[in-house]
């Protein structure tokens, strides 16, 4: 692969990322964006933090606030990617993509980038809410490490999102499945209570989902841990996200072959 070839792939990647951004984030109104980006998270955090603090004591509010702030990445990572693919279906651009000589892996992955960035923004908003409303204290925190945790979690949830994006190509109701996963993650990923309290078999599911290790690492970063102490967790989190992304790509490639044999009337 020559340098110019790589340069051209990078250009395609950058431009298609930009277009995904424009296509996705041209909100009809500022109010709509504010509602989506701030009110929804506040709502979700209020619900779980109040519930958690009520059940386990007010001193734990920060615990719930941190977990739920990170969970917000799933909002961007999963629903954002699904929305991107749904867009493709809505506008009927998929046949053009499939009939083009474009590198599939590059175009596929570019669908996630915008949502990773959006996820990072969302978590920052979540943290602001956690600090302002729920007393999350970052005085002892290893801030650069916490930032790294946020980036890693955004990447890994988008990896899972790519899987749902592929499912969304053939299933109109992928969003419903994604909703279920979203709530499953609230329960299983250590957002609202420690994974260690779950039965062993269920923990297996927890650790095959993104978020679980990332939330654990972020909690340690807030407590002042060093990079070395959480490197394993973050590496694992990245690998889980990558595994989901590759599985999503494999599914996409399979669907492309299936479409060529005459299936996928839906998306066409």
């Amino acid at each position: 692969m020559g340098v110019s070839r790589i340069a051209s792939e990078v250009a395609v990647f950058a431009r298609s990322t930009y277009f995904q951004y424009v296509a996705l984030f041209q909100w009809a109104s500022v109010r709509g964006y504010v509602a989506y980006k701030i009110l929804l998270p506040v709502d979700q955090m209020l619900f779980f933090v109040e519930l958690g603090a009520y059940a386990t004591g007010p001193e734990n509010a920060a615990y719930f606030a941190l977990g739920n702030a990170l969970q917000l990445t799933a909002n961007a990572g999963i629903f954002g990617v699904i929305a991107t693919v749904a867009n493709e279906r809505h506008f009927g651009t998929l046949p053009i993509l499939l009939g083009s000589p474009a590198n599939r892996l590059v175009t596929f992955m570019s669908r996630a980038v915008v949502n990773v960035l959006d996820g990072i923004v969302t978590v920052i908003i979540g943290f602001a809410i956690a600090i302002g409303l729920f007393g999350l204290d970052l005085h002892h925190a290893n801030i650069p490490l916490l930032a790294l945790c946020v980036v890693v979690v955004s990447l890994s949830t988008a990896g899972l999102g790519l899987m749902f994006g592929s499912i969304g190509l053939v299933m109109r109701d992928a969003i419903i499945v994604a909703n279920v996963i979203y709530y499953v993650m609230l329960v299983l990923c250590g957002v609202n209570f420690p994974v260690s309290r779950l039965p062993g078999a269920v923990q297996l599911i927890s650790y095959s989902l993104p978020l679980t290790r990332g939330v654990e690492a972020a909690r340690e970063a807030v407590a002042g841990a060093s990079f070395g102490q959480v490197a394993g967790l973050l590496g694992g989190e990245l690998l889980v996200g990558l595994a989901w992304a590759l599985a999503g790509y494999a599914l996409f490639a399979t669907l492309e072959g299936w479409a060529r044999r005459g299936g996928m009337q839906e998306a066409y």
Binding site: S8, A11, V12, R15, S16, F19, V22, A23, Q26, N87, F91, G92, T93, P95, I96, L97, S100, P101, A102, T107
Partner: peptide
């Protein structure tokens, strides 16, 4: 088969990338 929210020019730029 077009991205309605993008300009005509951006549509062409994007598809030109896809077609290498």
């Amino acid at each position: 088969g077009l991205y309605w929210r993008l300009s005509g020019l951006d549509n062409l730029r994007y598809f030109a990338d896809l077609y290498r």
